[in-house]
């Protein structure tokens, strides 16, 4: 079976996100000062062949832990869709 994983990687809450901070600051220039706490992460999609959803989930989890996210500074979550 083929699955598509939609992965979100976000900087941990306690860590300063300079990119998000810069964008939060620019909201004022747009007249959208009520927007606060912009945080910017990464959205990653990938395709995976696996015999079932549980196996696909386990393999994607391994990819996230080993490479796609650095758990010292980021967290991740993902959804799998069969295609």
């Amino acid at each position: 079976m083929k699955f598509i994983a939609e992965i979100d990687v976000m900087p941990l809450k306690e860590i300063l996100d300079p990119q998000g901070k810069a964008v939060t600051g620019s909201m004022k220039n747009l007249g959208l000062e009520e927007i606060q706490n912009v945080r910017i992460g990464k959205h990653i999609t990938l395709e995976i062949e696996a015999q079932d959803e549980a196996t696909a989930k386990q393999r994607v989890d391994e990819a996230c832990k080993k490479l796609l996210a650095n758990l010292i500074m980021e967290s991740y979550s993902f959804e799998l869709k069969a295609v």
């Binding site: 860590i15 300063l16 300079p18 990119q19 901070k21 810069a22 650095n70 010292i72 500074m73």
Partner: peptide
Amino acid sequence: LTEAGLLPGALLHNSNR
């Protein structure tokens, strides 16, 4: 070396961007 786990911690974006 931090990514490889040979040294502890991580190197984040500079705080002044």
